[in-house]
């Protein structure tokens, strides 16, 4: 772990599912503190790509480095990276048999060996940050979707990661709950968290992204700062996608 190295450095990444090539030679660099939004049609490989960064998917070719550490077959380096890279999922994936507080303290206590009292204090701080400290004693099944996703963000933050990955965090939410989750994400972005977000929320992208990346068919088609990306897209495919997403 070298915090002066680029947060994420991906070179020529390939990924296959059987004969199907999901990722074709992806190159991507994310600096520390940078906010990157990835968009693209479904099946374009954007989720697959960010799931490679914490090795929920194994890649078949190319290199991934996180803060200079190469992700290879060395299980130790994978564990090390996962401690520093948090992830928020589309389906929340909270642990249903544990309370909100236990969800938040489990990993710090088991992985970082944080004493319980300290882990709980940290958890309460992040639950306050996502504005649901009063739900700490409840089980995930008793919360709304928006509340669950905010707990999931707090859970990831409790490991005090250097990078947060978001995999379509608002896609499974009812419309009226999207804003409360995006608000939390905006706050995190403003505080300087390194973020890679796969999302279709173009308003969010315009507001906080340093760079927007458009993927299609397993390739990065275009990447640009949000102003340029939304107002003057270079590629025909990007223009088509934007007209479909923003067009109504």
């Amino acid at each position: 772990m070298d915090l002066t190295a680029p947060a994420i450095e991906i070179r020529n990444l390939d990924k296959y599912y059987g004969a199907f090539q999901a990722l074709r030679g992806i190159d991507l660099r994310v600096a520390r503190g940078e906010r990157v939004v990835i968009c693209g049609p479904s099946g374009s490989g954007k989720s697959t790509m960010i799931r490679c960064i914490n090795q929920l998917e194994e890649h078949d070719g190319g290199e991934i480095r996180v803060f200079g550490t190469l992700l290879d077959d060395n299980l130790g380096s994978i564990d090390e990276i996962r401690r520093e890279v948090g992830m928020v999922f589309q389906q929340f994936n909270l642990f249903p048999h544990m309370t909100v507080l236990e969800n938040c303290t489990l990993a710090p206590m088991l992985v970082r060996r944080t004493p319980r009292t300290e882990a709980e204090a940290v958890a309460m701080r992040y639950l306050e940050k996502v504005r649901i400290p009063d739900q700490a004693g409840k089980y995930p099944g008793q919360l709304s979707g928006g509340q669950q996703q905010r707990v999931a963000i707090a859970r990831a933050l409790c490991m005090q990661p250097e990078i947060l990955l978001f995999d379509e965090p608002t896609s499974a939410l009812d419309p009226e709950m999207i804003a409360e989750v995006l608000d939390v994400m905006v706050t995190l972005a403003q505080e300087g968290m390194t973020m890679v977000c796969v999302t279709h929320e173009m308003g969010f992208a315009r507001k906080v992204a340093d760079r927007v990346i458009f993927m299609d068919n397993g390739e990065i088609i275009e990447e640009a700062p949000p102003g340029e990306f939304f107002d003057a897209p270079k590629s025909e495919r990007t223009r088509l996608f934007l007209s479909q997403v923003l067009g109504h």
Binding site: R82, G86, N93, A152
Partner: peptide, 26 residues
């Protein structure tokens, strides 16, 4: 659900705690 194990992996939980605390109880 598969997401349970993925969430545990993403939090950095190694195999045995992942099984003992997340997958087996459920």
């Amino acid at each position: 659900p598969r997401g349970q194990e993925e969430a545990a992996k993403a939090l950095g939980l190694p195999y045995w705690p992942r099984m003992a605390r997340i997958v087996l109880p459920q």
